[in-house]
Design a protein around this nucleic acid. Sequence first.
DNA 1: TCACTTTTCTAGACTTTGTCTAACGGTATA
DNA 2: TATACCGTTAGACAAAGTCTAGAAAAGTGA
Lengths: 135, 135
Amino acid sequence: MSNRDDIIKKLKSSGISPTSQRIDIAQILFAKPQHLSAEQILNKVNEESNSKASKATIYNTLGLFAKKGLVKEVIVDPSKVFYDSNVSRHFHFFNTDTGILTDIPDGAINVDHLPESPEGTVSTGLEVIVRIKNS
Amino acid sequence: MSNRDDIIKKLKSSGISPTSQRIDIAQILFAKPQHLSAEQILNKVNEESNSKASKATIYNTLGLFAKKGLVKEVIVDPSKVFYDSNVSRHFHFFNTDTGILTDIPDGAINVDHLPESPEGTVSTGLEVIVRIKNS
DNA sequence: TCACTTTTCTAGACTTTGTCTAACGGTATA
DNA sequence: TATACCGTTAGACAAAGTCTAGAAAAGTGA
Ligand SMILES: [Mn+2]
Ligand SMILES: [Mn+2]
Ligand SMILES: [Zn+2]
Ligand SMILES: [Zn+2]
């Protein structure tokens, strides 16, 4: 399913030229639904895959993927951004003791009566974060 | 209402020794419900008030106030933390074009069916952020 | 194939937010 | 007065992320 050719198709269908660095990064990200930091992705590319990519390319690529809607940035930790390979609507637990981000099971939370955006603005996304700590 | 003596009472009743730096920072923060970054507070202390405070003291004090529940940290902008002087439960719009954080009017949004926290953890807070951009 | 253009990648300098350390200052206490 | 305690400070430091300028790849047309 997430083999090289499918990844290439996925990138092309989003209008992204499938360079080898982009393919490597995509293979790591899209292997499963997960939350990774830029540093984790950089390490994985340079350990798990045969090729390598620079820090600048990691950030450029993640920014490109986010702009094209292939990943979602999750901002919950003041020290780093998480990149979420699951772009369908869902919400998060963030454990401030461990720094681990996990998904809230679908249907376990309900948000409604969504507010209208202020004059001159439009909504681009809804985020719900339940902060937790070890008990 | 937010004169010097009330501020001192407020700090004391939270178990905080009212030093002159802490009083200055509290006066700026608690003047009204608002969202300020550490840098904005540093600038205000050193411009608006007669005294001055160092960067280290600003961060120490904001950390102390947050621990005591006098301010709430809001993490929505990957580049800086906002300190919210309104600690009652409410949610936020974050405009990614302007970087401005505003409150969602009370009752304009409704969250229910809150999920149980995973085994071994307890919830410490709920955050709802509606990201918006200029239209 | 060749000449040329455009896109992507890279090392490393740089910026910014936030943390840490070690010295210093003020106040209370004996 | 001695000394202990707490808070403040300057500035070094750490870490995430951005930027720049050049090199490498890839595309284009003849
Ligand atoms: Mn930060
Ligand atoms: Mn950052
Ligand atoms: Zn997720
Ligand atoms: Zn607020």
